[in-house]
Design a protein around this nucleic acid. Structure first.
Lengths: 136, 136, 136, 136
DNA sequence: GTGGTCTAGACCACC
DNA sequence: GTGGTCTAGACCACG
């Protein structure tokens, strides 16, 4: 099974963290449905070209968060998460990200309009980037 | 001299980083004007209740970025930064923050409107928070 | 033949272990009498919705303990166990469990009375739970 | 700093788990007060004669539970836990242990009095054992 | 000095 | 085949 995760080893963020963020997003956005069997730690480690242990840590952290459920000898599955919980989690993640952005703006005394304009520009750029990929 | 910086030891971000972000913002937004003499390493360390090593690192990093300038035996000053540079720096910081936020939103498949609504909400909350403090 | 065993896949305990514990208890407490023919490996695996391998292991482990006896081509039976042995086994299991509980209590410096009170409460709750089921 | 933890490598329980249980108990019982600086991972690893990584895992797990707080470059501390929370945690641990014991008893059809008698006996034995150590 | 990350590789237990 | 534990050792970041 193939999972769309990309890692960037130039990033300051630890590998395991990059993977966690993306996997968490896949689950919370419903792209990986409840009960889905994830690739084995060895397989994913091979795909992402990293150590088994790194993946194990990812799976374990997400299990501690209640997003995964692992059974020895069987594999690791997407856990049942209440739709409400999922929606809350999902929203929280985004709210938190925007809070940080607004914080950064306020710190350098941006006006609301400045921020709005930057936001629009960034969003537009992102959508354009995605469209291109989709088209390609 | 007193500088409005707050550190949060519960944060995962390293101390030096929290301080750098805030000090950088104060300079780029013009709240600390060119030529301003910053408090000594010891003094700031005392104020923020942290190690001198931490502050030394902050000053040094910002000096490397060209935002500060140290004169032997005199102290550390806010450097001359071209207005264009300053404006670019300032904007870049905010753009970068919003890019991360949009990234987070896209990752869990938010629609543009969802993001816009979250942004508005967060911004409103922040302004409210600031007003309250200002009033107090 | 139907055997009252429930497995909990949310538990950290391995499947085979959960089943062993319960089957052992049924034998030692006399609820499964000597000579009783147990369901076939396949049948029990089907009932418990698990792999035949798991059940094979259970039967084999209990056979090694002397609680079961397998006759080629016929099936698996509850073995003859001396009444003394049975009583000793039975008691040991419970003693061991309480030893663990007391250990846990002592570790967080419970007084004897605290433990006694917790024990009473838990026991009462359990009896209540059983009564309800019995009534239903 | 010396911490009274003993490991038993003959046990089926993983090392990290044994250590976690004991450290958790020390914290919840108040024997390690809030804010106490724990030994460094290297030091404790040396004392317990195990790998640094095993200890790191212990500290990290307990941090995820909110019992510890670690600061990079500084060390690992016992976190502030509300007294209520602490008391609840503490009690829960013991209740859970007794629930398991009662479960075991019920499974082999012990009467309440049988269980009570076993409990008393085990408790008495434990207290005797502790007294002896204390005297020695 | 402290903790944080990652590696490669071994061995075990479960299904 | 799966995941679980543990090792030794390296290198980095923080204070």
């Amino acid at each position: 099974m193939w999972i769309p995760i990309r890692t960037n080893e130039d990033s300051a963020e630890p590998l395991y963290f990059q993977i966690e963020v993306q996997l968490r997003a896949l689950i919370l956005s419903g792209q990986l449905a409840e009960g889905t069997l994830l690739p084995s730690i060895r397989e994913l480690a091979g795909d992402l070209n990293c150590s088994v242990i790194t993946i194990r840590r990812v799976y374990q952290d997400l299990e501690n968060e209640g997003l995964l459920r692992t059974k020895q000898g069987t594999g690791t599955f997407v856990a049942k998460v209440g739709t409400d919980d999922r929606e809350r989690y999902r929203r929280d993640a985004v709210v938190e990200a925007f809070r940080a952005a607004v914080e950064a703006g306020v710190r350098v005394q941006c006006t609301d309009d400045e921020m709005r304009s930057i936001f629009d520009e960034v969003l537009k750029a992102k959508r354009y980037e995605l469209d291109e990929k989709g088209t390609t």
